[in-house]
């Protein structure tokens, strides 16, 4: 039965995604602009020396690519959460929560659906990047997969946790910006930590090291080059698991935020 429930939830998300082609377009245009425009402007300013996992000097666009993959996943994670908030306002969430299935499993299925969409978009972006001449090793298509799945799950779980506390569409859109941009800029997506260290911005360096998104990006970066960074994997998995467990608690009517306020009182 659980597999049927899981498939039903993933199937609906895929159907909805198919109807929202603008979602895929915007998911690709955003990082593509960064890759093409931003990296062109900074190509000569930000030379990247040999740092793991790179075995040689690399150009800035090559350095940016894992960060931009992270960006695709980050936006998709928030987008899935926004869809959940929309489902709540449209009433569809009630249909999910009154299904004869443990609530944690319904939420897990939502995360699996979000991760599937994330991975699909990430691979499409990889193709777009390759068309612009920014490539990764051939084997990256394979070695990236588990990292993208875990990253998609974790970022989806963080978004899910947000939906526990931010319950209205208009508030959630604002919160998305509040989460996405600090997470992206205070990470290693755009520049390595040693660059920040060299500039003497120690507090920014501290925030970068505390930012879970940094570990998501590094996990993807190392995976793309066939390397396994245990710290990044462990941190990303721990954050994802913690966010998921807190979300399950938040969606439990006996313990969480749900069921505290009346709705459509009749």
């Amino acid at each position: 039965m659980s597999v049927t429930v899981l498939l039903a939830i993933v199937w609906r998300e895929l159907l909805r995604f198919r109807h929202q082609t603008s979602r895929l377009v915007s998911a690709l245009v955003r990082p593509t602009l960064w890759l093409v425009v931003f990296s062109a402007g900074f190509q000569n300013v930000l030379g990247i020396s040999i740092t793991p996992p790179y075995a040689t000097y690399i150009t800035y666009d090559v350095y940016m690519l894992p960060g931009l993959l992270g960006m695709v996943l980050l936006f998709q994670g928030m987008q899935s959460s926004l869809a959940l908030v929309f489902d709540r306002e449209a009433g569809m969430l009630r249909l999910l929560l009154t299904a004869p299935t443990p609530r944690w499993f319904v939420l897990l299925a939502k995360l699996v659906a979000a991760a599937v969409l994330s991975v699909v978009q990430a691979y499409v972006f990889l193709i777009v990047a390759a068309l612009f001449g920014v490539d990764m090793p051939r084997f990256a298509a394979l070695t990236l997969l588990p990292a993208l799945v875990l990253a998609g799950f974790t970022l989806g779980a963080v978004g899910l946790l947000l939906t526990v506390y931010v319950r209205r569409m208009e508030n959630f859109a604002g919160t998305m910006n509040f989460v996405i941009f600090p997470a992206f800029f205070f990470s290693t997506a755009l520049y390595p930590t040693w660059k920040v260290q060299d500039s003497g911005a120690t507090w920014i360096l501290a925030v970068i090291r505390l930012n879970p998104f940094t570990y998501v990006v590094e996990m993807i970066r190392f995976a793309a080059y066939g390397r396994f960074d245990a710290v990044s994997w462990a941190t990303t998995a721990a954050v994802g698991l913690a966010a998921f467990l807190l979300s399950v608690r938040g969606y439990d009517p006996q313990k969480g935020m749900l069921g505290r306020k009346p709705r459509d009182e009749g």
Binding site: V5, A8, R16, G91, M92, R94, L96, D264, G266
Partner: peptide, 24 residues
């Protein structure tokens, strides 16, 4: 439910199929 609860972007059959799936 009191408030209509249907996914407007899906067809009637898809809505019912989704519900059937949720019920295993």
């Amino acid at each position: 439910f009191q408030q209509p609860v249907l996914d407007l972007d899906l067809t009637v059959g898809q809505n019912l199929g989704f519900h059937a799936g949720l019920h295993g």
